[in-house]
C-alpha cells in the first residue's frame, strides 16, 4: 500500500517538488534518480512519454474558455518498493519534452513522498532548485522595481493630473 508520511520541518511541500527539480540542472536530477533506482525496485505504472497538451485559458473580457496553443508535456508514473517492502507511488507532469527527465522526477517524487531510504539525498537538490528559483524571482522583480512609474512626480494639482 502507498503511505503518506509527515514531511520534515522546512521541507518544501510536494506540490513544489517538480518545479524545484525542473529548476536544477537535468544531469543532477538524473544522477540522483539513478542512485535511487539502484537502491529500490522501480516499476513503471505509466510508461514515460512525451507529447503535447492544449493550453486552456479563460478570456477576461467575457469569461470564455479558449486554446491559445499547445505546450510540450512529458509524463511518467512509477511505483517504488524499498528493500523492506514499503511502497510509494510517484509521478511527474512537466512542460518539457524529455520523457526520461519526467521519469527521474517521478522516481524522486515517490521516494520523497514515502520517505524511503535515500530520500535525504534529494533535499540538497531541492534546496539547489529553490536557490535557482529565488535568483530567477529576484531578476524578474528587478525588471519591475527598476521600471515602476511614479506618477506623483507628474503634477502637483489635480488639474495637472487630468492632462
Amino acid at each position: 500500500m502507498t503511505l503518506t508520511y509527515p514531511m520534515p520541518e522546512g521541507m518544501p511541500v510536494r506540490a513544489q517538488w517538480p518545479r524545484l527539480l525542473l529548476a536544477c540542472p537535468p544531469e543532477s536530477v538524473r544522477a540522483l534518480a539513478r542512485r535511487l533506482c539502484e537502491q529500490h525496485a522501480v516499476q513503471d505504472i505509466q510508461l514515460p512519454q512525451s507529447g503535447l497538451a492544449l493550453l486552456k485559458l479563460r478570456d477576461s473580457a467575457q469569461g470564455e474558455a479558449y486554446y491559445p496553443g499547445e505546450v510540450p508535456l512529458a509524463v511518467a508514473r512509477v511505483r517504488v518498493t524499498s528493500a523492506d517492502g514499503t511502497l510509494s507511488e510517484g509521478a511527474a507532469q512537466l512542460l518539457d519534452d524529455r520523457a526520461s527527465l519526467a521519469r527521474a522526477i517521478a522516481v524522486i517524487d515517490a521516494v520523497l513522498a514515502g520517505q524511503l531510504p535515500g530520500h535525504e539525498a534529494a533535499l540538497p537538490v531541492l534546496a539547489a532548485g529553490q536557490a535557482r528559483l529565488s535568483e530567477q524571482k529576484a531578476q524578474r522583480q528587478a525588471l519591475l522595481a527598476t521600471t515602476r512609474v511614479d506618477f506623483s512626480l507628474l503634477g502637483t494639482t489635480e488639474e495637472d493630473d487630468d492632462e
Binding site: 513544489q16 518545479r19 508514473r77 507511488e89 509521478a91 512537466l94
Partner: peptide, 15 residues
C-alpha cells in the same frame, strides 16, 4: 496540472 497520485494541483512549468 493535477498530480496523478494526489490529485493536488502542481506547477508543471510556466509559459
Amino acid at each position: 496540472l493535477p498530480h496523478p497520485v494526489t490529485g493536488e494541483l502542481i506547477e508543471a512549468g510556466e509559459v
